[in-house]
């Protein structure tokens, strides 16, 4: 069993607003409990800064149980830090050593401008979803839930894609700032389900067009997105996205 409390040096990205150039600031923390989560460690830092009359570090967070997708820190060069399949809020300090220096940065991608410090604007993801990430069914139109049997394996695979939390780690980890993993997860979910068929071709074309328009880069098959995804979204979804896009592009009338 390791130590109960550790001392840390934090190098944190500070940036007043989008226009500011930004810089690293170094902070010392002593007596950080190894039971604390990474965000709770930042809470401790902020409490210290506030009491000292300084400006606390701004960062996005909400559910703190790994599902809302709000937390977004680049820790020691990795999206959501060193543990695989773990969001920053579920990363705990027992994975760090006494005396360690930790570098903390925001997501860095042109379509995700910095709002302040570690907080970025990910509304581009909402715009991609609005471009076609839905089944066009009004409330009240639905047939009985069991009217259309769906093979369990299709439903399970659709679920695996639908488990994306929209945190943007895939974009942050990608050297091209590509949003292909995010887009492919939603396209796959609907492509795998009968409910998604009527708008299948239109959907993929619209979502990809919006993704390109917003300045996300292309996929060059590095696989960093999959490696850093806290929910284990598979890169095979990107292969499906490419097939769906190609097939839709070749369909007359689309």
């Amino acid at each position: 069993m390791g130590k109960e409390n550790i001392g840390l040096t934090l190098k944190v990205w500070r940036q007043k607003n989008e226009a500011d150039k930004g810089h690293f600031e170094t902070y010392k923390l002593s007596e950080v409990s190894t039971h604390a989560s990474f965000l709770e460690m930042i809470d401790v830092l902020n409490e210290q800064l506030i009491v000292e009359g300084k400006d606390p570090v701004a960062f996005d967070h909400d559910c703190r149980e790994g599902i809302c997708g709000m937390c977004s820190m680049y820790i020691n060069g990795r999206a959501h830090g060193p543990q695989s399949a773990t969001t920053t809020c579920q990363l705990h300090m027992r994975h760090f050593n006494d005396g360690e220096t930790i570098t903390i940065e925001p997501w860095r991608a042109a379509p995700f401008p910095v709002i302040k410090d570690l907080t970025v604007d990910r509304s581009a993801f909402d715009q991609i979803m609005a471009a076609g990430g839905y089944v066009s069914v009004n409330t009240g139109n639905a047939p009985d839930g069991n009217a259309m049997p769906i093979p369990k394996e299709d439903a399970d695979e659709a679920f695996n894609a639908a488990a994306c939390i929209g945190c943007g780690a895939c974009v942050a980890a990608c050297k091209n700032a590509s949003a292909m993993l995010f887009v492919s997860a939603k396209v796959s979910q609907y492509a795998l389900l009968p409910q998604g068929q009527p708008e299948r071709k239109e959907r993929v074309l619209k979502m990809v067009a919006k993704m390109d328009e917003l300045g996300f880069g292309n996929c060059t098959n590095t696989g960093a997105c999959e490696a850093e995804c806290p929910k284990g979204i598979s890169i095979t979804n990107i292969a499906r996205l490419n097939r769906e896009f190609l097939s839709a592009s070749l369909t007359p009338g689309h």
Binding site: V135, G140, A142, G145, K152, A155, A158, Q189, L193, Q195
Partner: peptide
């Protein structure tokens, strides 16, 4: 309504 939206509920082997 949720099924029609494509919510991937758990299913049995019969679908």
């Amino acid at each position: 309504q949720c099924v029609a939206q494509g919510v991937p509920f758990a299913r049995e082997y019969g679908g």
